[in-house]
Nucleic acid binder design. Structure first.
Lengths: 334, 334
DNA sequence: CGCACCTCAGTAAACGTTTTCAGGTCGGAG
DNA sequence: CTCCGACCTGAAAACGTTTACTGAGGTGCG
């Protein structure tokens, strides 16, 4: 097979009549005699030299790659994170390796284990459930990990999480202030991180405004549109509501559809509030009131945290960042 | 710095009392005497050995990474591609490196050039515009590239493209069959690949059904929601229409909003058709009729093509695949 | 019984960098 | 005139794999 395998540092050295060490030094901007520098640069240019990433990584133990693992990139929440992460990484000279795990825990663990191959310098992990397996793997990863979501105290990882409790409280209070008293709640599965947090938040929020928690006002969907539509239908079949909080925007869109099919006006008969404040919220009619949980910000902070951690020594304490929620009121609730 | 830098092939060799060559052979599943195999496996397990990706790549010239570069991952079209690509890649043992270039041509070229570092085994490129610079870089990339979109004949790349001409024709014919005669068209910028293709398609399609091309029926948006809403407003201000074709779903959603604000019923007064058939189409009311251009399929085929090309010798002719469009009729046009 | 073969394991040379270490040259100070 | 430091450079040793090539031992056959 041909010898035209692209120029290496050796090729340049020969052409410039210097040693490979000098070439390396010039290429890495270390001080060199002007003439040498000149010669090496000329040779490199002429040959169209491009450094080999694998060789560099082998020596430097840096790949300039960072992985992001989440359940499903099609979910607008993760999408917002990916976007933001990519931006931060690119600015810092890193590339993004994407893992969409289809909410499969084994896949996620697989990614965590794969870290040992050191094909990335760090990982941002946004798990949908945190299992014992996760903690075990986290405890002995070979590269820094930042978790988006909650993590038991004392873990060796930095984390960034949304304050969905407060978020739910914002929504409930808003609906209460609009005079709504029968507030339905379409949540996601309770054994997921966001589902559990929202459930706790909902109970606490009701107590805050002196409303009782009535199980018949709560239904579970699956965080997707159809599931939200069906959960809403079950809720309407069972009881009377004048407001509906959905655990994410996608389910809220499903709810809007069901309400329309049943001839209920929004916000006249039922005020609807979603969560995550994704782009979807502005595409519906009426536009959807939604509680933003800062997905973009969580992504950004996580990326920054990770880059910090990679750069600095790993000595200092691990940080936990809490991103505050923000209620964006639109037509569906006023 | 501790010496506990993780076990290498050498550590295993020592512990198992064999040479590193034997270890490598065992790890790569080459035939070995049962006892040796046994010893090596035991040692590897005990040490929790994980191979080093950089070292492996350096020797094998394979990284098991593939890059995908597109304008903006937040665009549902690209999103569908990413999803599908990721799936195919994962099944084949590759990882996905994502480049979201913000439609910046220089960034795209930068990615193309970076390929020389060989940090990936191949690239899937979905350019929004194809410049001379692209062709120049494509002509001398060091790894295989598959382009999603059109590429001049005779290039050294495989390509997969949508048949947006036929797609537009399907939409126009559908609207015509519904009895619509004043068909408005909200297109994207004409200097983009999709914009140009759709413009050509629209003219041809009108001719097919014996309608005249009237410039006053055409407006340009920017492929985003607001732009679509505004373009629709301009169209309505200027002339009378009973149907509206939008060059993508996002603009169609904007159009729906403007129509509602102006008190025009859909599909009663105006039938609306989008393009790309993204998830958005099922979230609107009425649900949006849309021409699917097979983004998911394009992603899948591109990934398959690339993997093929990487595996097989590069000898055979470069392929061009044309993905057929599909009209999905929903409530907004009947 | 000897020779050719086959199977398996070990030695050593890559792969393309970065980096340490040991000169070598030059200028200035003693 | 000698000696010392400052500055550059080149030789060579890593980094952790894979992969010829070589050699040793065992088997089958003449």
């Amino acid at each position: 097979m041909g010898a035209d395998d692209g120029p290496t540092i050796v090729t340049i050295a020969e052409r410039a009549g210097v040693s490979i060490a000098s070439v390396s030094r010039v290429l890495n901007g270390q001080s060199t005699r002007p003439e040498t520098l000149q010669r090496v640069m000329a040779a490199a240019d002429a040959l169209g030299y491009v450094p080999n990433a694998a060789a560099r990584s082998l020596k430097s133990r840096r790949t300039q790659h960072i992985a992001f693992a989440m359940a499903d990139i099609a979910n607008p929440v993760y999408l917002a994170m990916v976007r933001e992460i990519q931006q931060v990484l690119r600015a810092a000279g890193y590339r993004l390796v994407l893992h969409s795990t289809d909410a499969d825990v084994d896949d996620e663990l697989e990614v965590l284990r794969g870290l040992g191959q050191r094909y990335v310098d760090g990982l941002i992990l946004c798990p949908i459930r945190v299992t014992a397996g996760h903690l075990a793997e986290l405890a002995r990863t070979s590269v820094p990990v930042v978790v988006i979501g909650s993590v038991p105290d004392g873990q060796r990882v930095d984390s960034v999480r949304a304050d969905s409790r407060t978020g739910v409280a914002l929504a409930v209070r808003h609906l209460y202030e609009q005079g709504r008293r029968r507030i339905g709640f379409v949540n996601g599965p309770l054994d997921t991180v966001p589902g559990a947090a929202r459930d706790a938040g909902f109970r606490a929020a009701l107590a805050d405004v002196d409303l009782d928690y009535e199980p018949e006002l709560v239904e579970l969907g699956d965080f997707y549109l159809e599931g939200g539509a069906q959960a809403t239908a079950r809720l309407l079949d069972r009881t009377r509501i004048d407001a509906l909080l959905c655990a994410n925007d996608l389910m809220a869109v499903g709810a809007l559809r069901t309400l329309r099919e049943r001839g209920r006006s929004v916000p006249g008969d039922v005020a609807v509030v979603g969560m995550d404040d994704t782009d979807l919220a502005t595409t519906t009619w009426p536009p959807l009131t939604s509680v933003g949980l800062g997905s973009a910000e969580r992504g950004r902070r996580a990326a920054e945290l990770l880059i910090d951690r990679i750069a600095g020594a790993g000595t200092d304490r691990h940080r936990q960042i809490l991103v505050p929620p923000r209620l964006v009121v639109r037509g569906s609730s006023r």
